[in-house]
Simulated assay, not measured.
Amino acid sequence: MAVQVITIEDLNEFRNLLLNDLKEIIHSKPQQTKQWIKSKEVRKLLNISPGTLQNLRINGTLTYTKVGGIMYYDNTDIEKLLHGNKINALPTLFK
């Protein structure tokens, strides 16, 4: 049985190869978002209170699906809500 000596340079080379492989995997894999999001996640995503989320449901601004006692929100509806309320800032002429 032959003995192989591993040097610090070998370990550094292995580390660099491993890091490069991990970067390729992370960047090549598209980000998958969940289609259905629970109320707690929506509140965290939009940084709103439970009452505000309830108001969005009541006035029909944000649609939802209720299964059992849990409310789910379609991710595309949340994106539409955000894009629909987008405000284009005008450049300030005078400061």
Rank of each mutant, 00 (worst) to 15 (best):
Y73L: 14
L62P: 02
K29W: 00
K40R: 13
L90D: 08
L81T: 04
F14W: 05
V67I: 13
L62R: 07
L18E: 06
G84D: 13
I78M: 03
A2D: 14
K40P: 00
S39Q: 01
D77Q: 13
N75L: 01
R57K: 15
I37D: 02
G51R: 12
E41H: 08
N59T: 05
T61K: 12
I58F: 00
H27P: 00
D74K: 15
V5G: 00
I37L: 15
N75E: 12
L62A: 12
S39Y: 06
F94K: 14
L93N: 03
I37V: 15
L18I: 01
T61V: 06
D74A: 14
P91D: 12
V67E: 15
I48K: 02
R15I: 09
K80H: 04
N85F: 08
T65D: 05
D74S: 11
P50A: 03
T61E: 15
K44P: 00
V67M: 14
S49Y: 03
S39I: 06
I87Q: 03
K34N: 11
T76A: 14
N20C: 08
L17T: 00
V67F: 10
L17D: 10
K34D: 13
F94N: 04
R57E: 15
H83A: 13
E79R: 08
L19D: 09
I25A: 10
T52C: 06
N88V: 14
A89T: 08
V42R: 00
I37F: 11
L56E: 04
I25Y: 01
I25P: 00
N47H: 08
L19M: 13
V3I: 13
N47K: 13
Q54N: 12
P30Q: 04
L46N: 07
L93F: 09
I8D: 05
S39F: 06
G60N: 13
T7C: 09
L93R: 06
I48S: 10
K38D: 09
T7I: 04
L81Y: 14
K29N: 11
L81K: 08
L22C: 14
K29I: 12
T52K: 14
I6R: 07
Y64F: 15
K29E: 10
N16M: 09
I48P: 01
E41A: 14
G60Y: 03
P91G: 03
K29S: 11
T61D: 15
S49D: 04
R43H: 00
T61H: 08
I26P: 00
I6S: 03
Q35D: 09
Q35P: 01
P50E: 05
M1T: 11
I26T: 08
K40I: 04
V67Q: 10
R57F: 04
H83W: 04
Q54V: 07
P30Y: 06
I58A: 07
D74M: 05
L45G: 01
F94E: 07
Y64T: 06
E79G: 03
V67L: 13
K95E: 11
N85L: 11
R15N: 10
L46A: 08
L11Y: 02
N85K: 10
I78C: 09
G69E: 09
H27G: 06
V42S: 05
S39P: 13
T52L: 10
M1N: 04
S39R: 12
Y72K: 10
N16I: 02
Y72R: 14
N55T: 15
V5T: 06
T65H: 10
